[in-house]
Simulated assay, not measured.
Amino acid sequence: MSVFTHLVAELGRLMEPVLAESATAAAIVLFTVLVRLALHPLSRAAFRGATPVAGCLPTLLQLPVFFVMYRAFSSPEVAGAANELLGHRLFAAPLGSRWADALGEGGPFGPQGLVFLGLFAAVGVVAAWSAVRGRRAAAAAPAVPVGPVTPVLPVAGSRGGKAVSGQGERGPRGAKGGAKGWAKGGSRGAKEGGGVGRAGVPAALSAEQQAAMRKLGGVLPLLSFGTLITAAVVPLAAGLYLLTTTAWSVAERAWLQRRKDRAVQPAGQ
């Protein structure tokens, strides 16, 4: 934790001539951006769906950083020395203060309370943006067919990509192989007689399952508003980290989705 404290303190000193007392708060935002830049390759892999684990790694790797941030602005001492970060502020609010402390120092509209209200407003805007994008993504998802899927019958007489007439020696063999491929579901029958088997068609979802998925898709985007609760109980510095990393996540996903749509659009034209 002392390494983190030293890094944030040095970044704050570099920006102190311009930002004065709020330099450490800006250093926290810059530190968060550096962390997210380091995790950007994993976020891209998660967006592409490269591996199931890739989607969890960016979040899991941020947990130790958030814990260190929380401890750094909650502990009065670091490595046996006084914690110098606790004396820094964002405008009128100390970076180690919480919403409850601000309420006791002038109420919600006092100098410290206004800083927290500004933080909550920014977190709410980011959460609303995330919820809107989540709902749009759920609405744009392709519909899954309901009910049983009609199997695709094989093309009798197809062999090696060439049509075979129904007469002569090869015709019956092609029809027989095609029927066999349809019955067994695929490649073996297609190889023997050229039939096109489609047993690998995924099972369709029932109407109840699709309704449950739609409800879940409508609720999940609202979970982003849970960041508001977290920001109200953690130190102000940790709330700044949450705001920055959440805004980065939403903007990063929007950028990746835009790049994907641009790459797919020429192919569809």
Rank of each mutant, 00 (worst) to 15 (best):
R48T: 03
R48F: 04
R48W: 06
A50N: 13
P52E: 00
V53H: 13
V53C: 07
A54L: 05
G55C: 04
C56I: 15
C56K: 12
C56F: 15
L57V: 00
P58H: 06
P58E: 05
P58S: 10
T59C: 06
L60K: 07
L60Y: 09
Q62A: 10
L63F: 10
P64N: 02
V65W: 03
V65G: 00
F66W: 15
F67W: 12
F67H: 10
M69E: 04
M69H: 06
A72E: 10
A81C: 05
N83T: 00
E84C: 09
E84I: 14
L86A: 04
L86E: 07
A92V: 06
A93L: 04
P94E: 02
L95I: 01
L95Q: 00
G96W: 05
W99M: 03
W99I: 05
A102W: 06
G104N: 03
E105R: 14
G107R: 01
G107L: 04
F109W: 11
F109A: 10
G110F: 05
P111T: 03
P111Q: 04
P111E: 03
G113I: 03
L114P: 00
V115W: 05
F116N: 00
L117K: 01
G118N: 01
L119A: 05
L119N: 04
L119Q: 06
F120H: 06
A122V: 11
V125N: 01
V126R: 09
V126K: 08
A127H: 09
A128H: 07
A128Q: 00
W129T: 08
W129C: 03
W129R: 08
W129Q: 09
R133Y: 13
R135D: 00
R135K: 12
R136F: 10
R136G: 09
A140M: 08
A143W: 08
A143T: 09
A143R: 13
V146Y: 06
P148R: 14
P148F: 11
P148V: 09
P148I: 08
P151F: 02
P151Q: 03
V152Y: 10
P154D: 02
V155Q: 14
G157H: 08
G157F: 06
R159G: 12
R159L: 15
R159D: 13
R159F: 15
G160E: 11
G160Q: 08
G160H: 11
V164Q: 08
G166E: 11
G166F: 13
Q167K: 15
E169K: 12
R170Q: 15
R170D: 15
R170V: 12
G171V: 00
G171K: 02
R173P: 11
G174W: 03
A175W: 13
A175H: 10
A175M: 12
K176R: 14
G177H: 08
